[in-house]
């Protein structure tokens, strides 16, 4: 039902009138030093693709690369413990997995979820007049770069980690209850990259208001110091003819708009009344824009 052509978050297979299967896989190298937190973040990130489709996760398989010669096994145990806790919090179970010998640790999960075939939420359903909601603050990539350069303060790191390991479960359930039209989760292509996927798949022009963006503390300061990850420049280059900036948008705000996220929030299109209800029940989310018109796919930032 959903395949490769629309760059959606997961593959969807129609099983019967009641059930569609949602399948996804995601894994990466450590982005934090603490193995337990890394496990939690990797699992929250993998689960997010299921949530972004409006589905419920059922089973998970661990995917592990680990250097058994250079790191003690307790590190691996901690990674898996963090991952398992998040999978359970997400309402799923770990059904197995596979580990290979690798030069550096890698961890992630393949997930299977279910959704009613009529309640699948893809990135292609946004409608003119919809409001756009973002459920987590931006700036993860910039803070990760500052962390690599040992310039991030402990408070900033802690907030970023808490954001990355938070599940998108509640936001997903809420958008399903409110009948959201479209959703995707924000990861490596940054807010604008994933917004572009929605704009293109839905054939609409989408407007983002830069002054409304939720941003992690520290991110603007570090961006101002040039701690902007390579991914943000790649996203900027890829999107240059797809995004129109209106008025004076400061460079720092652009860095944040293009900043690649790990385990970012859900980006949801839904009618205005439902958006207001969403924000009442989920106040950490922010209204960041709206769908302006039908088109071939375009983004306006003002």
């Amino acid at each position: 039902m959903v395949g490769l052509d629309t760059s959606d978050d997961a593959a969807v297979y129609y099983l019967n009138e009641e059930t569609a299967l949602v399948q996804t896989v995601d894994f990466f190298t450590p982005i934090v030093d603490d193995p337990y937190l890394f496990g939690q973040i990797a699992a929250a990130n993998a689960l997010s693709d299921i949530y972004a489709m409006g589905a419920k996760p059922l089973t998970a398989l661990n995917i592990v690369g680990f250097p058994t010669c250079s790191l003690p096994l307790t590190v691996l145990e901690e990674i898996l413990r963090g991952g398992a806790e998040k999978v359970i919090e997400g309402g799923a179970i770990i059904a197995g997995g596979h580990t290979i010998q690798d030069d550096e640790p890698k961890y992630g999960l393949s997930l299977l979820g279910v959704v009613h075939p009529k309640k699948i939420i893809t990135n292609g359903g946004a409608q003119v007049g919809d409001c756009l909601i973002l459920t987590k603050p931006l700036g993860i990539g910039i803070i990760a770069t500052a962390t690599k350069g040992q310039m991030a303060s402990p408070e900033v790191k802690e907030k970023a980690i808490d954001s990355m390991r938070a599940l998108n479960k509640k936001a997903a359930e809420l958008m399903q209850d409110l009948g959201a039209h479209s959703c995707t989760d924000i990861t490596g292509f940054g807010l604008l990259g994933h917004a572009w996927e929605m704009a293109k798949a839905s054939q609409v022009t989408l407007e983002i208001e830069s002054a409304r963006l939720p941003v992690l503390p520290g991110a603007r300061e570090y961006a101002n110091f040039g701690l902007v990850p390579a991914g943000a420049y790649q996203n900027r280059e890829y999107l240059q003819d797809k995004v129109e900036f209106q008025g004076e948008i400061p460079e720092i705000e652009k860095d944040i708009l293009f900043d690649p996220q790990t385990s970012g929030g859900l980006f949801i299109a839904l009618p205005k009344e439902q958006a207001e209800k969403f924000l009442e029940s989920f106040p950490q989310a922010a209204l960041v824009g709206r769908i302006l018109a039908k088109s071939q796919g375009k983004i306006i930032v003002r």
């Binding site: 961006a223 101002n224 110091f225 040039g226 902007v228 390579a230 420049y233």
Partner: peptide, 15 residues
């Protein structure tokens, strides 16, 4: 590389 150049430029401007 152009990315490091842009980041060093940002640093100087930021300061």
């Amino acid at each position: 590389n152009p990315i490091s150049a842009a980041n060093v430029e940002k640093l100087a401007q930021g300061l």
